[in-house]
Simulated assay, not measured.
Amino acid sequence: MNENEKLAQDVKAWRAKEGFTAAAAAKVLGIPKRTFEGIEQGRGFPYPVLLRVAIESETRSLGANLKGS
C-alpha cells in the first residue's frame, strides 16, 4: 500500500468514526470538498503530515467538546 492509499484509508476511517459527510469533513479541515474527495479516492495531498495532524486535532477537540457538554 502506498502513502496515498494509506492516507485515503485513514481519512475514510476518521470520517466514518466522526459521522461526517464529505462536505462536513472538508469544512472541519478547512479544505475544498473536491480536494477532500480526491484524498479519499487516493489521489494524495501535498501535505499528508499536516492533514494527519489536523485530523488528530479535530478528533481531540470534538471529544473534549462532547465531554464538556
Rank of each mutant, 00 (worst) to 15 (best):
Q41W: 05
L62I: 03
K67G: 12
K6Q: 01
K17P: 05
A24S: 13
M1H: 00
E3Q: 09
P46V: 06
S57P: 10
F36W: 08
T21W: 00
V28N: 04
Q9T: 08
G30F: 03
L50M: 10
K6H: 03
F20L: 01
L66A: 14
W14G: 00
G30A: 02
G42Y: 06
K33Q: 14
G44H: 05
K27Q: 15
Q41H: 08
P32M: 04
E37F: 04
L62V: 12
E40G: 02
E58Y: 05
Q9F: 07
G19L: 15
A22T: 15
K27E: 15
S61A: 14
V53W: 12
G68T: 03
E40R: 13
G63A: 15
Y47A: 13
I31N: 02
W14A: 14
K33R: 14
E18S: 07
F20E: 03
T35G: 04
T35Q: 07
E56G: 15
G63K: 06
T21E: 00
L66P: 01
A23P: 11
G44Y: 03
G30I: 06
A8R: 00
G19E: 04
Q41P: 01
N4M: 05
G19Q: 02
G63V: 03
K33S: 11
E5L: 05
A54S: 14
P32W: 04
K6T: 12
A23F: 12
A24M: 10
A64S: 08
F36I: 02
I55G: 08
E58N: 13
P48A: 05
L50F: 13
K6I: 01
L62R: 11
K67R: 07
K17I: 04
E37L: 10
A25G: 03
R15V: 00
E18H: 14
L62K: 09
G19K: 11
I31R: 06
